[in-house]
Each structure stands twice: as structure tokens, then as C-alpha cells.
Computed example of a mutant assay.
Amino acid sequence: MTDINNDLASALDFDFSVDEPAASDQAENEQQAQLQQRKQRNLSLFSRIPVTLTLEVASVDISLAELINVNNDSVIELDKLAGEPLDVKVNGILLGKAEVVVLNDKYGLRIIEFNNKELGELTL
């Protein structure tokens, strides 16, 4: 197994067991330090994983017959009101709401609402 595979295996080795209380404050401090180091290692590994961030303006369900009749002059009404916050998604999972801003002649996002999701929910 390569070092990267070992890092990945150890990073994904989540320990859900309940530990017995530490015998002393020193032992508890050492456990906390080891746990913190493990979290840092996991975070370092996860920080290199690419994800797709998407800004969704709105959506609409239309029939295939309506879609076939779409041409250059067609207007399709969407399900959001003008000025309403837009959905920010990570890998298709709703992460929060944002508004569009302009930064150096490019579009950007100002996050105005953030859903505190667990990492596991974002990987589904």
C-alpha cells in the first residue's frame, strides 16, 4: 500500500467506540492531543478532495412536449421570485443560499445562509 493509500485508510478509519474515562488528567490530555492530531490529518486529507460548487438560479418541471417546442424566442417561467437568494450546492447537495456579486468583472457569490451539514451528508 502506498503512503497516500495508508493516509486515506487511516483518515477514513473513524472510531465510534466509547472510551472509558481516563485515569488521570495527563492521560486525558494525551488522548485529546492524539485526537486533535488525527482530526488535523483527516482534515488535511479531505482538503485536497475536489468538489463541484454549483449556483442554482431556479428550476422548473416541464413536459417533454413543451421542451420540444422551445426555440430562440421562448421564455420559460422559473419557480423563484426575482431577488430571491439562490441555492448553493456542493456535489448536488444544498449547502446554503447566496446572492450574486461582481468581483473584478467576474461573477462571485456572497453566502447569506449556510447549512451546517455533516461531511457525510455532502458525500452522498
Rank of each mutant, 00 (worst) to 15 (best):
M1N: 13
I4V: 13
I4P: 08
N6M: 13
S10G: 01
L12S: 09
V18T: 15
V18I: 15
D19I: 01
P21H: 02
A23Q: 08
S24V: 11
S24F: 03
Q26T: 10
E28Y: 13
A33I: 09
Q36I: 00
N42A: 10
S44I: 03
V51N: 04
L53M: 13
T54E: 14
L55I: 07
L55Y: 06
E56L: 04
V57L: 09
A58R: 06
A65S: 12
E66R: 12
E66W: 02
L67Y: 10
I68N: 06
N69F: 05
N69K: 14
N71M: 00
N72H: 07
N72E: 07
S74L: 10
E77N: 11
D79W: 07
L81I: 10
G83H: 10
G83E: 08
P85W: 06
D87E: 13
V88A: 05
V90L: 15
N91Y: 03
I93M: 13
G96Y: 05
A98V: 07
E99F: 02
V101L: 15
V102L: 07
L103R: 04
K106C: 14
R110N: 10
I111A: 07
I112K: 05
I112D: 07
I112T: 15
N115Y: 09
N115F: 11
K117M: 00
K117R: 05
E118P: 00
E121A: 08
E121P: 00
L122G: 00
L124M: 12
